[in-house]
Nucleic acid binder design. Structure first.
Lengths: 127, 127
DNA sequence: TGCTAAGTTGACGTTAACGTCAACTATAGA
DNA sequence: TCTATAGTTGACGTTAACGTCAACTTAGCA
């Protein structure tokens, strides 16, 4: 336990604005406790925020991030049917990620080639 | 040479709407020739579209895609200063891609663990 | 207890990336 | 030559993901 984070603490930690954290709460991605009216973010909020930002960096929508995190949530007890559905979802998400991975590798390869040509030209040129 | 693609041919090939292609042209990503008023897309347009879609899938903006493609354009002759700038840009983009790659790997690892727990629970349960 | 800094809730604004008409125009085949 | 089909140009609409006030309220501390 950390005693919780204030909204500015958490926003500075992840380099986002407080507005973003309130917006994420509005969309159901975060669910901070309250002391009076003031928000107190838990470790759970911390990791959900981390996952959310990781997801958006990869081009997933907030809605998709929420869906994934809600399914993966370890605090929920799932029955067999739900567990099977979760496994299916995982495969789906994994495939999406692997597709992105291939996109990245293709781009990296292309960049390597451009760089090589670039250096070749530089080295074969007069000073 | 392929003789060029019509707007619907190209849009169907990549599963986007004609509107998207016109929009990309407006933003300087594509530059189709014209027969009368009708657009004719070249192989260059084809590959620029492919790269654009690949970029957006990875979360890059159209502006970033354009910047990268314009720099990498092999039809331009660059002097040493420009070549060095290009090399620097390549390193920059490569770092961005490697960061995304790490994000993906972290997510894949997390998903593997959830799946493992998921299967464990399923297998240890009564029918 | 009074003040400053931090936090809160609306409400409206903004930007990117298209979608969706509407109103023409051009082109190819019968 | 006529007509159906594909294409064109505006212009306005939409959605996601926040930004930006404004107007209060709260909380810690000298």
């Amino acid at each position: 336990m950390t005693g919780g984070y204030s909204i500015t603490e958490l926003s500075q930690e992840f380099d986002v604005t407080p507005r973003t954290l309130r917006f994420y709460e509005d969309r159901g991605l975060l669910a901070p406790a309250r002391r009076g009216t003031t928000r107190i973010y838990s470790d759970r909020d911390y990791t959900r925020l981390k996952l959310t930002l990781r997801g958006t960096r990869l081009g997933f929508s907030l809605e998709e991030c929420k869906e994934i995190m809600d399914m993966y949530d370890p605090s929920r007890r799932l029955n067999s049917r739900q567990l099977l559905r979760l496994c299916a979802k995982i495969r789906e998400h994994r495939n999406a990620l692997l597709a992105k991975l291939r996109d990245i590798e293709a781009t990296l390869d292309a960049m390597d080639e451009v760089e090589r040509k670039c250096l070749d030209t530089l080295l074969s040129e007069p000073a």
